[in-house]
């Protein structure tokens, strides 16, 4: 494990001619496009659990919206890109978080929000329409980048970089990695997975799980540890 030499708060990269900053807030900043990008917020997950009789406290929606606001304010972004799974489950219309989302959107109509529909968004088209998002298709090119919810196969990505001529941003996986925080004590953290031409973003949502990623020689793994980015040593 090696802390980045430069500024731990953000990591600046150049991939396929696009300048990218990874942020420890589990987001990507694209300065050339003046856009900030996040993935897998899973709004309404806690509410869905509550409806099903599983006690999850309230507050995750508010906290997440505040984090988005802060992110947009600090970067000065004009566009927010969401790489799918903005909502968790649309089947149950839990009032509290829907109202909160609508009120939040009413207050920031100036912000352009672009969404790639994820597998979880299938059932909440109505809500997403109300929020006036700009919907793009899976794999659609947006400015200098290609937006996906489902990542390209990692081996294909790392071994055959031909075909893609632009950077792919994707989500869906909720990548996480374990770091020893004390002898024999391992803790999981969300992380970015960097391939040759693709970046898989960590889940932005709070009440979302992590899927441990295997390290391959062609990937870099950068963990979000509180307000710092830490690169995990390659295998």
């Amino acid at each position: 494990m090696d802390a980045l030499n430069s500024d731990c708060k953000r990591m600046k990269l150049m991939l396929e001619g696009t300048s990218i900053h990874l942020l420890p807030e589990r987001a990507v900043w694209l300065p050339q496009m003046n856009a900030v990008c996040i993935a897998d917020t899973h709004f309404g997950k806690a509410a869905t659990f509550r409806l099903a009789g599983l006690a999850v406290p309230e507050g995750t929606t508010t906290a997440m919206l505040k984090r988005i606001d802060k992110l947009v304010a600090e970067t000065g972004a004009e566009t927010l890109i969401v790489l799918g799974d903005f909502t968790h489950s649309g089947k149950v219309a839990a009032r509290d978080y829907v109202d909160e989302l609508v009120a939040w959107r009413d207050s920031n109509m100036g912000l352009n929000i672009v969404l790639v529909l994820g597998n979880h968004d299938r059932h909440s088209r109505g809500l997403i329409e109300r929020l006036a998002f700009h919907i793009v298709q899976e794999g659609e090119r947006f400015g200098q980048v290609e937006l996906r919810h489902f990542p390209n196969s990692t081996t294909a990505d790392s071994l055959n970089p031909q075909g893609n001529t632009c950077l792919v941003l994707s989500g869906h996986l909720h990548p996480g990695c374990a770091i020893a925080v004390a002898p024999k004590v391992w803790k999981k953290f969300p992380c970015f997975v960097l391939g040759q031409t693709q970046i898989i973003l960590p889940a932005f949502g709070e009440f979302t799980g992590l899927a441990q990623v295997d390290r391959t020689p062609f990937q870099r793994i950068i963990a979000c540890v509180e307000d710092e980015l830490i690169e995990i040593d390659p295998v």
Binding site: R50, G53, A55, P57, E58, A94, D96
Partner: peptide, 13 residues
């Protein structure tokens, strides 16, 4: 779901 101060909306068991 929680005590009266943090009563969880929509929760039912």
């Amino acid at each position: 779901g929680g005590d009266s101060l943090v009563a969880y909306p929509d929760f039912k068991r």
